[in-house]
């Protein structure tokens, strides 16, 4: 479904991050990407998300090479990304934060599905008019995940989504993402440095020597 072909990347300071990286991701699957700090996990996720266009090589989505000036469309229609923390806009209340995913991507906001997810992610007892600052780290992550899911993109990227969350919650989040990829036909790529988290995923890749290596 998503292929990276000969992706090379280095920042302006000429530090090489990737050298002709090749990988193919399938839908319905959850991928874990591991690697030491500074190995380029976040950089890779940014490239996949279409947030950084200074790469060499090709991103092929459903057998079509994505033109660099179409990256904005690709990002808007296909991808949602969850960061380690700081995913929410602090000046919007919880419901408005979740709605932003749909509003920006021009998708209809599914109120019924929204309520369903709230229950599923154990957020149904929250006051949706309150600001994100009152939420715990884990709750914020789950709000961000609901926002991703409601925007109904094929690709869900998560950059260390469990880093600021306790172990039990972390496990729960991974379980939910995995379940979604299977049930809703989505590609989920999770960057993590936690071994037990990675092991929950369908495939585990290691980022080393400028390339991805299957575990």
């Amino acid at each position: 479904m998503l292929k990276l072909k000969d992706i090379s990347f280095s920042y302006q300071n000429n530090v090489e991050i990737f050298d002709k990286l090749n990988i193919e991701f399938e839908e319905n699957k959850t991928y874990a990407i591991q690697g030491v700090s500074g190995s380029g996990k976040t950089t890779l996720l940014n490239i996949i998300a279409g947030l950084d266009d200074s790469y060499k090589g090709e991103i092929i989505y459903q057998d079509q090479v994505i033109d660099k000036n179409k990256l904005q469309d690709y990002r808007k229609n296909r991808v949602s990304i969850i960061f380690q923390d700081n995913n929410l806009l602090n000046y919007l209340n919880i419901k408005d934060n979740i709605k932003q995913g749909c509003l920006i991507k021009n998708k209809a906001f599914d109120e019924a599905l929204f309520n369903e997810y709230l229950t599923q992610f154990k957020l149904d007892n929250l006051n949706l008019n309150s600001y994100p600052s009152i939420l715990s780290g884990g709750q914020q992550q789950r709000v961000a995940i609901i926002r991703s899911l409601l925007s109904k993109t094929d690709i869900i990227l998560a950059d260390e989504p469990t880093a600021s969350v306790d172990e039990v919650t972390a496990m729960k989040i991974i379980e939910e993402l995995k379940e979604l990829s299977h049930n809703e036909n989505k590609l989920v790529i999770i960057v993590t440095h936690q071994k037990d988290i990675a092991n929950k995923c369908d495939y585990v890749y290691h980022l080393q020597d400028y390339n991805l290596v299957l575990d």
């Binding site: 998300a49 947030l51 904005q72 990002r75 808007k76 991808v79 949602s80 990304i81 960061f83 700081n86 995913n87 929410l88 806009l89 602090n90 000046y91 932003q100 995913g101 920006i104 991507k105 926002r147």
Partner: peptide
């Protein structure tokens, strides 16, 4: 910048 980053990640123009 944090907020702009979030918006950009949400694919805002």
């Amino acid at each position: 910048s944090y907020e702009i980053g979030v918006l950009k990640a949400l694919s805002e123009r």
